[in-house]
Amino acid sequence: MPDDPVTILLVEDNDVDAEAVRRGLRKNKVANPIRRARDGVEALEMLRSDDPETAVSPPYIILLDIKMPRMDGIEFLEHLRDDPDLRQSIVFVLTTSDDERDKWAAYEKNIAGYILKSRVGEDFVHLIEMLGHYWRYVEFPPERRNSPQS
């Protein structure tokens, strides 16, 4: 596994929620680069881009909101899992939706976890702490040339 820092791709349409994630990271002294997409369309563009300025390249994890304009989180997951270059991506869903239908739909698309950000009065500090531990201990999908046929 390369020593490149893990990039956090935050797919989130709500500016305050996006800032909450950044604050949480700062509070936890997590210095990993954060990239933000405002919906699924923008996230796919960043993941598929050849331009080093805009591209998000491995290793990365995706923090995905569900309800977004243009392309919501569930649709984004469908595109992601259909794309041979992107299907191994690690995705955490980070959403206010407590709806069972969303949870089913998201886990159908092999997400790493479904996290509710719905509780007022808590910020994302503990959540970010958990994610920080996650990428310290978890092996990421290997580089493309080593990857098994899927």
Binding site: K67, T96, S97, D99, S118, R119
Partner: peptide, 9 residues
């Protein structure tokens, strides 16, 4: 559950 909760949070 979503749209009203998000601005509150």
């Amino acid at each position: 559950s979503h749209d009203l909760r998000a601005p509150l949070r």
